[in-house]
Design a protein around this nucleic acid. Sequence first.
DNA 1: TAAAATACGGAGGGCCCCGCCACTTAGCAA
DNA 2: TTGCTAAGTGGCGGGGCCCTCCGTATTTTA
Lengths: 186, 186
Amino acid sequence: MPTQRADARRNHARLLAVAEEEIAAHGAAASLEQIARTAGVGSATVRRHFPSRRALLEAVFRGRIETLCAHARELAGAADARAALLEWLRAVTAYGARTRGLVAVLDRCAPGDDGAPDACAARLAQAGAPLLRRAAQDGAVAPDVAVADLLTLITGIVLATEHHPDPAAEADRLLALAVAGISPRR
Amino acid sequence: MPTQRADARRNHARLLAVAEEEIAAHGAAASLEQIARTAGVGSATVRRHFPSRRALLEAVFRGRIETLCAHARELAGAADARAALLEWLRAVTAYGARTRGLVAVLDRCAPGDDGAPDACAARLAQAGAPLLRRAAQDGAVAPDVAVADLLTLITGIVLATEHHPDPAAEADRLLALAVAGISPRR
DNA sequence: TAAAATACGGAGGGCCCCGCCACTTAGCAA
DNA sequence: TTGCTAAGTGGCGGGGCCCTCCGTATTTTA
């Protein structure tokens, strides 16, 4: 496909904007029909541009994920590897807690997995890898911990705190608990 | 209501049994209509016995929660308070990972919260409190950690690993990571 | 400007949740 | 045992959502 038709591109952009609002308001399970209605297009057009709910979510959050990746790159050269890693983890957590629906996209293999190599989770993991590696070299984290583990943990924390009065604060608290260890062997 | 009618009690029991299978097969979002169909009753009857999906889930899992509470009581007198707490946490995690839909009931305030005081999460928390208290007295965990925090963490871990090839193993791994600490200050 | 390719949107089927209402049945009393 | 009463039941209709198909409209290209 050399190029898209102009109206298609317009609808695509419009749908993304509307979807973002709708997901912010109603979470990752927002009604696709409602999005179509608000955008003033037929429901079939939504599916044409985004074959699955997951595809729509990934498109909506691509930019935010990219921001987090960039953050990781900025921290790559920090003097304190441990502090850098922890700052990044807190940033991911805060973003996830603040942005409804975002973690649904990190929850790999969730309903409708397609194993796409450029999945959001994979790109985040790739961006965070250097931070973790340096922290591990410093002995600040165990060597057998993977970025995917940390992201899964964060995903879980955000999912479980989604309905609290203050999700961001609660998520941050729990992340701190997991970082310090519930009961580390002395 | 002094007593229920016999057929009502029968339907109640039958629905519980069918719902348990259906939830095990399709998760917490299992179709209530399908449950009604399989049980051979009208869909209104399901709703009459269990006003909300959450009510049904709680009824289905009440027994399992009770088992976990009993486990906590058994461990209450153990010599090693830290080991006792950790064993219990692992047990809760394993149960949650193995039993589809169970954590939906622990996720307090999830859609359809009613703030019932005898909610499953509350009872679990109450049962685990002594274990945590003793562990804290031994200095094995920080004094400001609440049972609810630990249960929320476990809930999150189970939710986030639900779709992995081997949920129970992955959940256990992540719990161990959180217990030891991602990057405890030395 | 006309033909061809591309994109659109509404209709229809399937499934689900929910509330309503006439009917059946269990349990009590005579 | 036989009625009587109220608790309990189940089917029906309304409203949504997801998904697919297909005739139509719009854009691009020749």
